[in-house]
Amino acid sequence: MENESKICRNVECDRKDQLLPLTEFYQYPNGEYYSECKRCHSRQVQENKEMGAIKAIEKLLELEIIKNSEVSSARTLFISCQSRINACRYNIGIYKDIECHWESPLAFMIDIIQKLPTVWHDWKIQNAIYEETKHDSDRPTIDRIDEFGDYSLSNIQTLSKHDNSKKARSKPCRVMIIKDLKIQGVFEFGSKKDLFSDLIKVGIPINATQIKFDTGVFQEVGNGYTLLLQSKNGEVPTADEALYKVVINHRRELIDEDTGQVIKLLGHWQYELNAGALRI
């Protein structure tokens, strides 16, 4: 096939004269590929972050908002603020439809330092731990207290990257299980980790990297199993057209109380309706 490879247009790229596979380039939402390879793009993003952090820190020192002893904490805070702003602006992953109430990392930082002294105090403590251990899991991050809310003054706190990830994994969820076209039931779990672990134990081949939550769509996972997964309070997207035909059978029966056997069928009705994305 044509156009399976391209050249990185960054003149400083150490592979600028090589044809690289398209997997080495990020894609825009419209399907077009970046002009520079992932390696160069990541390096440029990091350089931009560092330059932005330096300028922000210089401004904070000039305004006497931070002290020289707080420069290291201000640097990691800038990077986290910028990351949250960009994730919300470009609807990246779990940040789709989440709003950030700041457009500037500097303004974000100033509000945290001046209006949320507890958050800033916790940030400096966690940053000191990160500086000592050098473990990425100890890096301080900006977390939303209510994960369904936006990034606002009333909804942010400091958490280590480890605790932030642990909180995300602990999100309650439920699943409807269908086996060979028959509903087995709807089951609830305390976290996605518990869901994956328990389903695998009973022979349902669920893959954490491929399965998706809150789609409103059934997903085939193999071994005759089909799943519909939803996180607690998860937003299921609306569908412009019908995705499923739902058939409801209603029976009225006369049952012997002693034997539990059906004595007589008193009536049978069937309803059909079209449905878009499903919610459980």
Rank of each mutant, 00 (worst) to 15 (best):
Glu62Met: 09
Ile113Gly: 09
Cys173Trp: 10
Trp123Ile: 05
Asn164Lys: 12
Leu63Pro: 00
Arg89Tyr: 07
Asn207Phe: 03
Arg89Asp: 02
Gly260Arg: 03
Arg43Thr: 04
Glu58Ala: 09
Lys96Val: 08
Ser83Gly: 07
Leu199Trp: 06
Asp198Glu: 07
Glu4Gly: 01
His250Asp: 13
Thr209Leu: 11
Glu4Gln: 07
Gly224Asp: 06
Ile178Val: 15
Phe108Trp: 09
Arg144Asp: 05
Thr158Val: 13
Gly260His: 01
Arg251Leu: 13
Glu188Phe: 11
Gln82Val: 04
Pro172Phe: 14
Ile110Gly: 00
Asp240Thr: 12
Asn127Val: 00
His101Met: 10
Glu103Asn: 13
Ser35Lys: 14
Tyr271Gln: 09
Tyr244Trp: 07
Asp143Leu: 07
Thr141Ser: 15
Thr133His: 08
Asn127Glu: 12
Asn223Phe: 07
Pro140Gln: 08
Leu273Cys: 08
Thr141Glu: 04
Glu103Cys: 01
Ile94Trp: 00
Ser137Ile: 12
Ala74Tyr: 00
Ile113Glu: 09
Ile177Thr: 05
Ser191Arg: 05
Met176Val: 14
Lys232His: 10
Thr133Glu: 11
Ile113Cys: 12
Pro29Tyr: 08
Trp123Phe: 12
His41Tyr: 15
Leu199His: 06
Ser154Thr: 08
Thr259Trp: 09
Glu253Ala: 07
Gly276Ile: 03
Asp97Glu: 15
Leu227His: 02
Arg84Asp: 08
Gln230Ala: 04
Val71Trp: 00
Ile125Pro: 00
Leu20Met: 11
Glu36Asp: 11
Asn274Cys: 00
Asp194Thr: 01
His135Ala: 12
Phe148His: 14
Ile183His: 07
Lys192Leu: 08
Trp102His: 13
Glu103Met: 06
Ile177Trp: 10
Ser191Ala: 03
Asn3Asp: 10
Asp14Ile: 11
Leu265Lys: 13
Asp14Arg: 09
Phe189Trp: 04
Leu22Ile: 11
Cys37Thr: 06
Ile79Arg: 14
Phe189Met: 10
Leu106Tyr: 14
Gln46Ile: 03
His41Gly: 02
Val221Thr: 04
Glu272Leu: 01
Arg9Trp: 01
Leu243Thr: 00
Asn233Asp: 15
Glu131Asp: 11
Arg169Asp: 13
Asn3Ile: 04
Glu62Arg: 06
Lys38Arg: 15
Gly260Cys: 04
Ile129Cys: 04
Ser191Cys: 09
Arg75Tyr: 07
Gly267Val: 00
Lys212Glu: 15
Ser165Gln: 13
Pro237Met: 09
Trp269Arg: 13
Val45Ala: 14
Asp258Phe: 05
Leu227Val: 09
Ile178Asn: 12
Lys67Pro: 00
Val11Met: 11
Ile156Tyr: 09
Arg279Phe: 05
Ser73Ala: 15
Leu243Val: 01
Asp17Ala: 10
Ser170Phe: 01
Gly224Phe: 02
Asn3Glu: 12
Glu47Ala: 14
Lys245Ser: 10
Ser72Trp: 02
Gln18Phe: 03
Cys13Glu: 07
Lys212Ile: 02
Asp14Ala: 03
Met1Asp: 10
His41Phe: 14
Pro205Phe: 05
Lys167Ser: 04
Cys37Tyr: 11
Asn274Lys: 09
Ser154Leu: 02
Gly234Tyr: 04
Phe218Val: 04
Tyr225Phe: 14
Leu195Val: 02
